[in-house]
Computed example of a mutant assay.
Amino acid sequence: MTFRQMNAKYYEPAAQWTMIFGVIFLCQPWVEILHRYGLTIIIIGLVAFLITSHVPPEPEAEEEEEEELV
């Protein structure tokens, strides 16, 4: 598995989920430590997403189709 495939399958979704958890942590009132660091978690997820979204996807193999002359 190449880095680009791992990025598309694991790293980019992990960065998105980190941002989502940061919003959830920021909005919940029960655990103070999560509420305190919610914005920091959002920023970490945002930076990770910016990095992972700029990695280009794996180039697709081009299949050359032979055209038949009729």
Results as ranks from 00 to 15, higher is better:
L39C: 04
M19R: 10
G38V: 07
I24F: 14
E64S: 07
R4C: 05
G22T: 12
I43V: 14
E64G: 02
Q5A: 09
I43S: 05
E60T: 09
H54I: 03
I20G: 10
Y37N: 13
A15N: 14
R36M: 11
Q16C: 14
V70P: 09
K9S: 13
E68M: 04
I33R: 10
E58Y: 00
V55I: 12
K9N: 14
I51H: 06
I44P: 00
E64F: 05
T2H: 01
E64V: 02
E63P: 00
F25S: 13
E58I: 04
A8P: 00
E68P: 00
L46D: 07
V47L: 14
L69F: 03
Q16H: 13
L39W: 12
F49R: 03
Q16S: 14
F25Y: 14
L34N: 10
A8V: 01
F25H: 10
P56S: 04
W17R: 15
L26F: 09
E60V: 08
M1Q: 00
M6F: 09
G38T: 01
W30T: 11
P57L: 01
N7F: 02
R36V: 11
I51F: 05
V31D: 08
A14E: 04
T18A: 15
V31R: 06
E68Y: 04
E66V: 06
W30C: 11
I44A: 13
E12F: 14
I51M: 10
H35I: 02
L46S: 09
I20S: 12
I42Q: 09
V47K: 05
V55L: 00
T2F: 02
S53E: 01
Q5N: 08
W30F: 14
T2K: 01
Q5K: 08
M19A: 11
T52I: 07
F25A: 07
L34D: 07
K9W: 11
E62R: 06
L69A: 02
E32I: 11
E32L: 12
W17N: 14
G45F: 00
E60F: 00
Q16N: 14
Q16D: 14
T52A: 11
F25Q: 10
L34G: 03
P13W: 13
T18R: 14
L69G: 02
F21S: 13
I42D: 07
I43R: 07
Q5C: 06
Q5D: 05
R4H: 07
L34P: 04
H54M: 11
I42E: 05
R4V: 04
I33V: 08
G45E: 05
A14V: 11
V31I: 15
